[in-house]
Amino acid sequence: MIALCCWLAAAQARAEPAFVTIEGDLKTIAWWVLANFHPFTTEVRGIPAREIRKSWCKATEFRKDLIPRELLFEGGTDAMAAANMSFAVEGRFDGTAAKQVALVGVFEECSGQKGRFILILNQPAQGKPKIRFVNALRTDHQFGALQKGDDDSIVAWTCMECDNFSVLKWDRKKRKFDWQAAPVEQ
């Protein structure tokens, strides 16, 4: 019996932490502000983390099934769906026939630093996706969500109930994805 207890304790110590941990009071601050994400995979959609960025050891795409339901469905409503936000959006963002997916997630460098990333991948009918765009930001606040803009743009959010967003769009002249200037308020 003692041996079994010791084995269970050792197994628990080796277990990975939950993908999302909350540090703070959910009654006063939104979960996505308090969330700390713990990447645990070494690839994103079949692409090794080190192929995305050489300094990365782990990278995990945000997915609803990785986040506790009580956080995503506060009060019984899917707040992300209500705001038309997602962790991944599909489209033909560069105007070509190639189907693409834009997604957000969290990375961890081999040095231990963490941050948020946005990837745009070409999705071929067969074979591994091809990286078209990578944006990575070291940050203690890793939450991110996306919306598909009306003009084939990608709207990147760092929260769910704020005005903190950026717009990413294919620039035909530069032949690359580029961040758009924020609209000027009159």
Rank of each mutant, 00 (worst) to 15 (best):
E43P: 04
D163M: 07
R69Y: 14
V44C: 05
V20R: 00
A97F: 11
I22H: 11
A11Y: 11
G112H: 01
D171L: 09
A136G: 04
V89H: 01
W56Y: 10
P48N: 08
N135C: 05
R63M: 07
K174W: 01
L121S: 04
A15V: 00
T21L: 10
K174C: 04
L4K: 12
F117E: 01
C57N: 12
N36A: 09
Q126E: 15
G75D: 14
D150T: 12
E70Q: 08
P17H: 03
A3V: 06
K58L: 13
S153E: 05
E108A: 01
G24H: 08
A11Q: 13
R69G: 07
V44T: 00
I29N: 09
T28P: 06
F62S: 12
P17C: 05
R138T: 15
R172M: 04
R45Q: 10
M85H: 07
R132M: 15
D140N: 14
D150K: 14
H38V: 00
E61C: 12
L72E: 06
R116I: 03
G127C: 07
A125C: 00
T158Q: 05
A83Q: 15
V101G: 07
I52N: 11
R138A: 12
I67K: 06
L103C: 15
P68C: 03
C5R: 10
Q113D: 14
Q142S: 14
A82C: 10
Q126R: 14
T41L: 03
V33H: 05
V167F: 04
L168V: 09
M85N: 09
Q100E: 15
C5S: 07
A13L: 14
G75L: 14
A82S: 14
F165W: 10
N135Q: 09
D140Y: 08
A79Y: 03
D171I: 00
Q113A: 14
A35H: 04
F40Q: 11
A30H: 04
Q186M: 10
T42K: 02
G91D: 08
T139M: 08
S111N: 10
A83N: 15
W31R: 03
A15L: 11
F107W: 03
T28I: 01
R138W: 06
W32P: 03
A88L: 09
V20F: 03
A18T: 04
D65C: 02
K169I: 02
D25L: 01
N135Y: 01
F87C: 07
G112D: 07
I67C: 05
L8A: 12
Q113L: 14
L8D: 11
F177M: 07
T139Y: 02
Q126F: 08
R69E: 15
L119Q: 05
F107M: 10
N135D: 13
K174M: 06
K148D: 08
P17D: 08
N164L: 10
W31K: 00
A97I: 06
V104H: 01
E108K: 00
E74W: 02
T21F: 09
F62W: 13
A82T: 09
F107G: 05
A35P: 06
E161W: 03
T42Q: 01
A15Y: 08
A82I: 03
C159G: 11
F107N: 02
R69C: 10
I131V: 15
A3H: 12
I131G: 10
K148S: 12
R92E: 15
E70M: 05
M1N: 11
V33P: 04
R116K: 12
K176Q: 09
K174H: 02
S86W: 08
K64D: 07
A102H: 01
N164W: 06
